[in-house]
């Protein structure tokens, strides 16, 4: 089960995330727990693999909003980066950036599952 302490250790700005939830810790943790199962991670990965940058951008953009609202900084920072690159249709190898994102997502997944 995810906790504020685990999230702090993960590097999330929980104070900000909680404040955005009006201090409702249960709500905040419930929403954080949905992130590892968030479909847009797969959509991002598949779209990049298929070189569909538009679809990849949509997925990244959606994730950016959600992760920003929860202040999950370790995930949010690379997502902002990839969103901007995809927005400008930058033709590059996204693998390393995508790996960072997916690693962090998996790490969060583990924290939630523990």
């Amino acid at each position: 089960m995810i906790t504020i302490e685990k999230l702090n250790a993960f590097g999330a700005n929980t104070a900000e995330g909680l404040a955005r939830c009006f201090g409702n810790e249960a709500l905040y943790l419930k929403l954080v727990a949905t992130i590892p199962g968030e479909g847009n991670f797969d959509k991002l990965k598949d779209s990049i693999a298929a070189k569909d940058l538009k679809a990849a951008f949509e997925a990244a953009h959606a994730l950016k909003g959600v992760l920003g609202n929860l202040s999950l900084t370790p995930l949010y920072t690379p997502i902002v980066e990839i969103t901007e690159l995809l927005r400008s249709n930058t033709d590059m190898d996204y693998k390393s950036l995508l790996d960072t994102i997916l690693e962090k997502k998996d790490e969060l997944g583990r924290l939630c599952a523990d």
């Binding site: 955005r20 009006f22 949905t34 959600v66």
Partner: peptide, 16 residues
């Protein structure tokens, strides 16, 4: 909003 997280955070704020 199609994102549950955004909807719920905002809903929690506005329901005040």
């Amino acid at each position: 909003d199609d994102e549950v997280v955004n909807r719920e955070i905002l809903g929690n704020i506005l329901s005040v």
